[in-house]
Nucleic acid binder design. Sequence first.
DNA 1: ACCGGCCCTGTTACCGGTAACATCATGTAA
DNA 2: TTACATGATGTTACCGGTAACAGGGCCGGT
Lengths: 331, 331
Amino acid sequence: MKKKRPTLQDIADRVGATKMTVSRCLRTPESVSEGLRERIFSVAESIGYIPNRAPDLLSRATSRSIGVLVPSLTNQVFADVIVGIEALTEPAGYHLMLAHYGYSPELEERSLASLLSYNVDGVILSDHHHTPRSLRMLETAGIPVVEIMDTYQAPLQQAVGYDNVRAAFDMVSEMIRLGRRRVIYLGVRLDERTRQREQGYRQAMEAHGLTPVALHSRQRSSYSVGAALLKQILNDYPDTDAIFCTNDDVAVGAYFECQRQGMDVPDRMAIAGFHGHDVGQAMTPRLASVITPRQAIGEAAAKMLLATLQGETTNERVLDLGYRIECGGTL
Amino acid sequence: MKKKRPTLQDIADRVGATKMTVSRCLRTPESVSEGLRERIFSVAESIGYIPNRAPDLLSRATSRSIGVLVPSLTNQVFADVIVGIEALTEPAGYHLMLAHYGYSPELEERSLASLLSYNVDGVILSDHHHTPRSLRMLETAGIPVVEIMDTYQAPLQQAVGYDNVRAAFDMVSEMIRLGRRRVIYLGVRLDERTRQREQGYRQAMEAHGLTPVALHSRQRSSYSVGAALLKQILNDYPDTDAIFCTNDDVAVGAYFECQRQGMDVPDRMAIAGFHGHDVGQAMTPRLASVITPRQAIGEAAAKMLLATLQGETTNERVLDLGYRIECGGTL
DNA sequence: ACCGGCCCTGTTACCGGTAACATCATGTAA
DNA sequence: TTACATGATGTTACCGGTAACAGGGCCGGT
């Protein structure tokens, strides 16, 4: 027996006008006579009117909302990206609809369907790989799409990010330049970007005639996993002199394990991570890492999407925001 | 000139039936004759029909979605909570609408209005303090509300969490029991829970006749801030023998600074954090911390909300999921 | 043969805003 | 005074599903 929430009609009844007039008053107050306007606002306030987007959703198939699909919310990287996106969409009056899919394309498909069923005006996607069905849906929905985090592959429409392969290549090359020869790659999960970084790592190793060795954990990324992987290295490849980790969590976890083993970093073991998160930058020695412009990526993606929604057309399809190699004290 | 996305009518036209029949077929396939059913599904597939929730939103003021308001997404704590919530809402067919408000009640109000304008069926809130307008909106919306993270204050309807004051009290008492006398509290930002932990800290100190000292940073929580605060302590209160930090980031940051200063932990300085995140648990010495059941809180909140939405009534208003004091190696 | 019921499908109306158009009063220039 | 612009408000229809009700064909039992 919950009471229905107030509508424009309820306001109209109380001030003796039609809901059309009330609608006008709330949208363009100056188009309504002063006395009426004041009464309408006062009644709206007193009965606690809350705008209702449902009719808009229905009649104009527009929701003033943007769907954002990220693989994981617990991954700090995407939290930063989202902050960047919202910094632009919120002032523009767009509501963000977030969904995460745990790195599974099937779940991405379901989440996408859910977002589209709410008539989102545009979507931001975090992976390049989508199911055929997802692609179909995006096509029939006919809304703007921006893909983020990677510039390596051809985008559906537009993309913002950096080149994961090249970033990994550069970091590993730097390690080799500094004299490391037995560099191992540490990965977790098997998402796209982890594979791309591995690819860059392999290219760098092979370019210098070195043999690439990659270790993976199937668990989700964590400090503990980094520690466990380092133990495995000491066991299986005891003469390793450097590790390049797919992210900072793993790198810092591995560093903790080095400490426990009394293994000097970087003399005996060099360590590099990816993304340049605060943990690594706050510890001593400072963690070597590829610093990525996560928040800027979010902002740029939102900017692109909003521009397209406002009808602007551009022929710039891919925006590369680059990265920075931070050597820190662990190389 | 974007093409309209397919509707039930489009399917109906192609199979020579009415949209009502198509609607029935998609919802309860067995209520439609076999031949028609097959044609409908095949056409739906071929034109790429995507369900549209807008009409439901409008005609039944229900969206099968739940609004979740968290202060921050970059705060790992809430990422965990969200994972817990979604673990229950997703299988139940509810879509999560996330919004964050940066610890500002005014922004919370705006976010809440936005969620309500999409006719969410229920909301989960992360703070106890709301603007009068927010309270009004919740009341007129007439939807179930669950507040999370704290059991200290009387809930609007229902609440799930743990007692921040008591948790802090217990941790600080433990530090004192182990011989610490000049324990300082390190806080960041001034959100509710930080203040509650400070309150628990003060109670513990005063219960033992000790003088409480609290230091705050106005910056958002980070490892760097923890390090900076520790430096400040060494300068202003050089004989401090323990710090209790409002969260693990600050605690670990402070620990890094102790390392840099060559200050032994825990002999010279004991350190305790809050939440029991993986960083602290993976490092050596393991960080003392109050381990909170974040994911379980999310799950319990979702369970409560779903139960209420299914019409169940309960007189259990507050669910306390407790916490655990982990002494680690830093006390 | 007739009736009742079942199964399948169709018809109508509705949800709550707002675009588009209609109406009406007042003002103002010719 | 007439004609027409201007401003304020009302009327109608629509968006896309689905609840509720209305047929109509067919079957079996009497």
